[in-house]
Computed example of a mutant assay.
Amino acid sequence: MSRRVALVTGASRGIGAETARILARAGTRVVVNYRAKTKRAEQVVADIVAADGAAAAVQADLTDVVQLDAMFDRVRAVHGRIDALVLNASGGMERGADPGYALRLNRDAQLAVLDRAAALMPHGSRVVFVTSHLAHFHGSRPGLAAYESVARSKRAGEDALRARMPWLAERGISLVVISGDMIDGTITVTLLDRMRPGLIEARRAQAGTIPTVEEFAAEVAAATTAPVATGHTFYVGCTDHYSVPADPHDVVPGFGSTPHRR
């Protein structure tokens, strides 16, 4: 893996940052994408370099076409290729975000990143889309009202990416999805727990255990090279998320549709 290059979006903290560290320890040169937290991204790079790895931080708001093009111009100039694209960045719960932001980031920006990255991805490269059970099973199982707009937009993003699989296959690029239970320590789960105090403990009691950031990131990193067919879905943690004890007013019902399961 010493010559592989991976681009990890949303990698200044949490799952993205830990995924970047794990990939770098395995010898991959990592591009650490971030939107605004420069110091955090630079610290991730410093951690990697201190451990004899190779990484660089590249700022780009994925919803901004100009910034996106600038990021890929730099990747092209420095590395010339991308062997693994980890689509980790997501959002929609930010304070002050407009109603359409979640869909622009979780669907439209994912496609915009993929379109640009594919031009740099050689035969045999891999795209990994990172999502949650609440999003992956959206529409087929009850969910949380507080997370509804994010779950709906991330499900739309997954569907849109899957629709590109024939196009990717023509280029020898595979796409896999990795879906996680509530991940202990992530900003999203922390925010949900603040809205619904006790949510994390209720989920842990219901599922027996929930993955940590480090555990989930290890699975994301492994998915970049796992010998599976395109379209495969990896599940991390219990998939029986819909029975989390909840206030009836905070539950969005499922409608019986069946998501992709492989």
Rank of each mutant, 00 (worst) to 15 (best):
F72K: 02
D247L: 10
I48E: 12
E18H: 15
L68A: 06
T239D: 05
R152D: 14
G237P: 10
V65Q: 11
A17N: 08
R40A: 14
G237I: 08
V49Y: 08
P122V: 05
R107C: 00
F255S: 12
A84V: 01
S179F: 03
A41N: 13
R152V: 11
I210H: 04
L120T: 11
I22W: 05
A145T: 10
V177M: 07
E170Q: 12
G185Y: 08
A17F: 03
R152P: 03
L191H: 08
S140K: 05
A70V: 00
S149H: 10
A55C: 02
L191E: 12
R262D: 15
I48H: 11
L168M: 14
P211Y: 06
R13L: 00
R194G: 13
D83I: 06
D159R: 08
A163C: 01
D115L: 01
I200E: 06
P99Y: 12
H232D: 13
S90K: 00
A77G: 09
A46T: 13
L175A: 05
S2K: 12
A102P: 02
V251A: 08
G208K: 02
R76H: 10
G96D: 08
V113E: 03
P248K: 12
E214C: 01
R104E: 09
V30C: 14
F234N: 07
G157E: 07
A145S: 14
V5C: 05
G80T: 11
V66M: 08
